[in-house]
Design a protein around this nucleic acid. Sequence first.
DNA 1: CCGCGGTGCTTGCTATTGCAAACGCGTTGG
DNA 2: CCAACGCGTTTGCAATAGCAAGCACCGCGG
Lengths: 171, 171
Amino acid sequence: MALPKVGSIGEYIRDQRTQAKISLRQLAATAGVSNPYLSQIERGLRKPSAEILNQIAKGLHISAQALYVQAGLIEEREPDSDVLTAIRADKFITVRQRQVLIDIYESFRKENHAGAPDEDAQTSQNAHPRPEPHGRDEESLPEELLTALEPFAIRHSPNGNGDATQETKEG
Amino acid sequence: MALPKVGSIGEYIRDQRTQAKISLRQLAATAGVSNPYLSQIERGLRKPSAEILNQIAKGLHISAQALYVQAGLIEEREPDSDVLTAIRADKFITVRQRQVLIDIYESFRKENHAGAPDEDAQTSQNAHPRPEPHGRDEESLPEELLTALEPFAIRHSPNGNGDATQETKEG
DNA sequence: CCGCGGTGCTTGCTATTGCAAACGCGTTGG
DNA sequence: CCAACGCGTTTGCAATAGCAAGCACCGCGG
């Protein structure tokens, strides 16, 4: 378990470097790392830190993300949805808030998907797969949120509060 | 110049952790790192590798990119914090669901902004006037909303991380 | 009172990163 | 022919990442 994908990133780097027609020493110089170290990285003998990786990416003029993904350091951006991506990337909300948003969104998706596996979701704009029990659509106050979410939370977790081991008991 | 931006990432991690209301040890466990090391990371005494960073990101349920950016390991080139835009563009949810998500997200932002002068939020263009719910900033959410969402906020997919913590906290 | 469990922090210690120096190997050319 | 210069690689070593063990502090229950 020492070097699972480390090899792949090494190959990737070497591949990019050779494609760029630059020597190992050259890249090492521009990347600000030593030649021998770069050599070892390329052959998967060393596991470069993110810093070094970033430097190498710069030296190769490629996006650091690509390298991180190759290194297995970043979950390959699954095109789940732009919404999830945006939520995960958002840094104006807290972890807890993020988790709530993700849960809600995924539940929405799940609800809609139940019985309507068809990908053509355009109809969802004006055709609800599940008719809302409450047709109230006045202002979207937090209170309304509660009302809207109540039936929903019940469906999602009928057990209510099964065992929240990690949940700090507040109150 | 041993720890230039390292401090910032430490602060960021600690901030996210405390906001998530989880202890240092807890995060260390879920992230798969030792408690003391996480402590040192948070205080900027150590410079975590990308691997560790990735683990911590997972433990915090935030995108690894966010952490890398904070660590200065990625030249931020896609802020992509347009959650609202993404929600509006999403075509897999109904109008009502969309509205709920937007309301919740804005509510979150509002809560966090209570006292934060940083106002780069490009507020929604057609967002209807939302009445100020409450100015309580003690929690991420109003208590009521949290309560309603509680069965929900619990992480739903033990899948993914597959990190089984033997936290048999038997009361 | 003291133990028990929780928090975060300090202390050695090992494993690994990352580098400087030096190597073998092929090409040029005096 | 062999010095000179390029390439990638090998070898030892300093620095440190990361951990196990243990510390100090605090709230709770016997």
